[in-house]
């Protein structure tokens, strides 16, 4: 299976990272890989269980145990990490 190159941004961060995950990866694997670039790096540590992923132009979180391809993620899609519940009570970015 080939790698899926993706654009990944994160709530409260400033940058979009290029991240590649194997197409057999689950959404939670993608979250873990992407969060390791930001959480504790640019942003304070957050429990992994609070991190969700959505497509940048959608509001609903993708199911963590779904395969990334089955979840509708295609090469060079832009996905966005966010925290739930909102870390400071403010609406999600």
């Amino acid at each position: 299976m080939s790698d899926l190159p993706l654009l990944v941004s994160c709530e409260r961060d400033f940058l979009v990272h290029l991240v590649a995950v194997p197409s057999e990866a689950r959404v939670c694997d993608l979250i873990e890989a992407a969060a390791s670039l930001v959480v504790g790096v640019h942003l304070p540590d957050m429990p992994a269980s609070s991190i969700r992923l959505r497509k940048i132009d959608r509001h609903e979180a993708l199911p963590g145990d779904a395969n990334v391809v089955d979840a509708g993620i295609e090469p060079m899609d832009w996905v966005h990490l966010f925290f739930e519940p909102a870390s400071d009570g403010k609406p999600l970015q």
């Binding site: 654009l7 941004s9 400033f14 940058l15 979009v16 940048i56 132009d57 970015q93």
Partner: peptide, 16 residues
């Protein structure tokens, strides 16, 4: 690099 002010929303409609 694509950047935004931390805390400010991205604008997918205008950026893709």
């Amino acid at each position: 690099p694509l950047v935004t002010t931390p805390g400010k929303s991205w604008d997918p409609q205008g950026q893709m």
